[in-house]
Structure formats: C-alpha cells, structure tokens
C-alpha cells in the first residue's frame, strides 16, 4: 500500500476541514477501504479517521424513528438496535464478528457496494441519510454501483430509520466473501410496503415496485407468486447468472414476508 498521512479529528467540523485537501479520503471502519488500498485500487494522500468522533456513534430511538450514528459499528447496531429488530439482525449478519467490530453503517453507505447489506435496509425503510451539510432521502442517495449523492468531502453523520410495523432481511450469502449473492429487505409501514434488493442489479441497490404494490394490497408470500423479475440488467458473475439472481429475488422476497 502507498503511504499517506493519518489524521484523527475529534469533531465533524475538524474532519470536514481535514478532508478539503486534494486526494484526502474519509476512513471509517476500513473493512473495505484498507483491503482496496492494499491492492492499490485506492491511494489517498491523507486518511481522515472518523471513528474518534464520539458524536457519530450510538443508536437512539426517538418515537417511531431509530437514529443510528454513522460511525456506529455493525456489532453495536446488532446489540443495541432491538427497537428495529430486522435492522439489528441485518447488522449481526454482516461479514464475521471481527469485521462487525470495525465496520460501520456510514462507511457501508458511502461505499455503496452493490452487494452490501445496509443499502437495502436504508432504501426499504425510506430512511433519511443525514450529512454534515444536509438531509438526503434514501430514494435520492444511491446513485449506481459504488456511487452516491455525497459531494466531495461530505460526511454522513447519522441515518434516521422509520421503524416499520413488520420487516425482515433475507440474504443468500456468497460464502467466501459473506456479501449478499442477493439480499431482499421487506418493510411494511402503515402507508405501504417497500421492497429493496441488493446484490442483484448492476446499478446497485434497487426497489422492486411490482412486489411493493402486490404486498401493499396483500402482505403474504403468495402475493408475489404471479410476479416475475426480468433478468435484464442483473449481475452476471461466476457465482450466479442474471436468471438465477432474478429467481433469488422472488424467493427471498417470499421468505422475507413469511419471516416479517
């Protein structure tokens, strides 16, 4: 890995200032960034560590919203996120225990890996991504594979999840990487059902509108029986064809509804 300057500011303001340098990057848990730097896919001149900022950590319930600090680890969300049980279960299934002790919600979202788990929860929950500068609706945040609405140097500070009536995340795990070969998050709210799919589309996390309509009318696994998912635009790799992933989306949606 190429060398870089390391900074660990204690406040969001100091972190924003430190990120103004050209080629500076924010470092959260580093569970993706450090391996990619070892491969020289990333070579920042400076890393600004966010995990020393206490204001970015913790899980807190405000009425029917669960607010999670961006630098909260997966392990902490799994342990303290019980008010939104499906979210806590998702966090407890990411990677392995040692990865969950470092990886963070904000890091996962800012990276927007097309097979990451968290983007599906944020999109299915219609959550709000809060940054140092603004609030971004989930539907506006994800912008294709590894791309988001974040500007240069903009830092996610927290995410506000409306707590659903029922929800479940079902992941078909790629056992070597422990990422989702395909994963589906189903969340039922008073005003309708949202279904988000990760690991399947070449555009990254996506909603499945037909299933949302069917499940909003009838929240049962059978409600999606008549639907089919087009394989166009789905990921093809050695682990699965687009057709295989299309089938997984439907199977996992049914499992999620049954488990919710």
């Amino acid at each position: 890995m190429y060398n870089f300057d390391f900074e660990q500011p204690g406040s969001v303001e100091d972190a924003v200032a430190a990120l103004k340098e050209e080629d500076a990057l924010a470092l959260s848990g580093g569970q993706t960034l450090i391996p990619s730097m070892k491969q020289r896919l990333n070579a920042p001149s400076k890393l600004v560590s966010l995990t020393g900022i206490e204001a970015l950590k913790g899980v807190c319930q405000n009425g029917d919203t669960l607010s999670v600090g961006a630098a909260t680890t997966h392990a902490t969300v799994a342990a303290d996120g019980g008010a939104y049980a499906a979210l806590a279960a998702l966090a407890g299934g990411i990677g392995d225990p040692a990865v969950r002790n470092r990886g963070t919600l904000g890091g996962s979202l800012a990276n927007n890996d097309p097979a990451a788990c968290y983007p599906s929860a944020v999109l299915a929950s219609g959550a709000t991504v809060v940054t140092n500068a603004r609030e971004i609706a989930a539907d506006d945040f994800f912008d294709g594979m590894f791309a988001t609405a974040l500007d240069e140097g903009e830092i996610i500070t927290s995410v506000n999840f409306p707590i659903p009536e029922k929800a479940s995340y079902q992941k078909f795990e790629q056992p070597a990487s422990r990422f989702a070969l395909t994963g589906v998050f189903v969340a039922k709210y008073a005003d309708g059902v949202r279904v988000a799919v990760t690991g399947a589309s070449e555009e990254g996390v996506m909603r499945w509108a037909e299933a949302e309509a069917a499940l909003s009318a009838d929240f049962s696994p059978e409600a999606v029986d008549g639907l089919t998912v087009a394989a166009d635009g789905l990921i093809s790799d050695l682990h699965g064809t687009p057709e295989y992933r299309a089938n997984l989306i439907k199977v996992l949606t049914k499992r999620a509804v049954a488990a919710a």
Binding site: F6, Q8, G30, I34, P35, L47, A98, V99, N101
Partner: peptide, 21 residues
Amino acid sequence: GACVVHVNGNAVKSCTMFAHE
C-alpha cells in the same frame, strides 16, 4: 482471522486496522 487480537475488548483483524487507529 489468524491475526485476530482484541482492541478495547473487541475482536478485530489486526491486518485490517492501522496502528494509528
């Protein structure tokens, strides 16, 4: 996972964390 150590009581992969962290 051969490099697992505990940092402030939590198991982490020491090959995927910087010394300065």
